[in-house]
Amino acid sequence: MNTRYNEILSYFPQNLRRMLGRGMNILEDSLQEIRIRARLPIILGTTNGNFAITPDGELSPAVGGAYIVKESDVRQIFTAVCENSVYAFMEDIKQGFVTIKGGHRVGIAGRAVNGKNGIENFREISSLNIRVAREVVGAANYIIGDIQKDSGIVNTLIVSPPMGGKTTVLRDLARQISDSGIKTALADDRGELAAIFRGVPQNDIGIQTDVIENAPKSQAVIMMLRSMSPELIVTDEIATKDDADAVLKCFGTGVSVIASTHGKSAEEVLKRENIKPLFSEIGFKQIIVLQKEGRGINTKVLGEITKIRQEK
């Protein structure tokens, strides 16, 4: 079985461990997420569709005869994910997810406790979603040549629809560029790029990379600029005006920027109100729209480049 799955299985109670182990073994590399909902079947989300799992560990596209999750299962898995120390993970829980060893992310849903500063805790947890981290070393191989040139790093905006591989490509870009000796700073506000677990990035993000995780981009980027003297800043998903402002502050400081955003095509992205200002003279020079080819382990991420401005 994929060794990454053993890590995930260790958070499950014994009976579920055996059952899921069998099912995951069949799935090999195609597993994307495990959805656990109280009094409902466990659903394994894969690149080939969703499957329920029977008490014997058989995968079935229909939910009849599937194992039904008990409330106590959800509780136990949640406590295990928090290393039997829920109090130590409160900051993560408030954000709605906990990162576990291996960089996998466990999303939490249920009855929230609201306090002065928004959500403070979850009283009853009804669902968990374990998103299997997919670190694909070499994911950026097809586009790195367009970004890292002899003249330096070209300011680039990476675009794709959700699940299009943006984060995976961005992570691999950071790794490859950083390993080539360029000081890289990751402003990883959702902890998806580095997946830090107890101070150690679980993903390979390169030898010259520093990360600020779980901090708003606007603050993290400025902190990095001042304190870590980066040559390249990499950040994921520019969505709000604050995010765009943070990136805008980097342009013209002598630091290159690679960022990503949701979108289908370059034309569409160029029309977005928040993104527009980022294409000024000192801003992004190109947009790369990712296109996936093939399925599962054979997926190739190719990029269609739209040059905003030709390099001199």
Binding site: R75, V86, Y87, M90
Partner: peptide
């Protein structure tokens, strides 16, 4: 109850 709750309840 050890390890199941937030700081206050612990």
């Amino acid at each position: 109850n050890l390890g199941c709750g937030d700081r206050e309840s612990e």
